[in-house]
């Protein structure tokens, strides 16, 4: 092998940067790829669980992508989905165990959702679409990028739902401090319910597409 061939591509080459940044906006898993909607509805009633869910997904997706990418030449294609599932499920169990050991209160709130990371379609989607055909480093960036893209939507949705639904931000009683209750303001209980998450995600998609026409599909 000649020397120039072995020369590595820089860690943050334009191509790699794209992997990290595109999922934040143009190629966002929730608003563009429409993956992971179900968990976006479930954990966004408050910012805190949304934030922890984001961290968990970053950890799981980052590692799962790297592991599958390292194993990609050895994985028998006929059982690749099973292998991917085993990798994801083990990582999720690890995350769950760590949460239970070190942030018990949060793990109590997330209870069911941590297990649901396994079924989060973003993770399987990225493993199948990217990690199986790419080197570990780009796969890692792709995983982190997609998890962040998922996470920021989650947190924005949670911000509006918590602020308007419970009158708090990160459990801090903002509305009470502002004293708006004295003027007859009431929290909107509807914001707490899952349908509002869908509507907020819808609004984000709308804003995103009206700003970037290239995302609008032609019929």
């Amino acid at each position: 092998m000649s020397k120039d061939k072995r020369e590595k591509e820089p860690l943050f080459s334009a191509k790699n940067r794209k992997l990290l940044i595109n999922p934040l906006h143009k190629d966002n898993p929730i608003t563009t790829q429409v993956l992971g909607i179900c968990s976006a509805l479930a954990v966004t009633a408050k910012i805190k669980p949304a934030f922890v869910m984001t961290l968990s997904v970053i950890a799981v997706l980052g590692f799962a992508n790297v592991i599958v990418s390292i194993l990609r030449h050895g994985i028998p294609p006929r059982i690749r989905i099973i292998v991917q599932l085993v990798v994801i499920a083990s990582l999720v169990i690890l995350v769950d165990q760590v949460l239970k050991a070190f942030v018990f209160d949060v793990s109590k709130q997330l209870s069911v959702f941590v297990g649901l990371i396994i079924t989060n379609c973003i993770i399987m989607g990225r493993l199948e679409a990217f990690a199986l055909g790419n080197k570990p480093w780009p796969s890692f960036l792709d995983g982190i990028g997609n998890a962040f893209g998922y996470g920021w939507i989650l947190i924005v949705v949670a911000f509006f739902r918590e602020f308007l639904g419970s009158g708090t931000i990160w459990d801090y009683p903002v509305m009470e401090q502002l004293g708006v209750y004295n003027f007859g303001y009431q929290n909107n209980g509807f914001m707490i319910l899952p349908p509002m998450a869908l509507i907020i995600v819808g609004i984000i998609i709308w804003v995103q597409r009206s700003k970037d026409k290239s995302l609008v599909e032609e019929n």
């Binding site: 083990s90 169990i93 690890l94 165990q97 760590v98 239970k100 050991a101 070190f102 018990f104």
Partner: peptide, 13 residues
């Protein structure tokens, strides 16, 4: 891997 993790973290849990 999983069983050793479970054993290590058990006291904290």
């Amino acid at each position: 891997i999983l069983s050793s993790a479970a054993m290590l973290l058990k006291p904290y849990q």
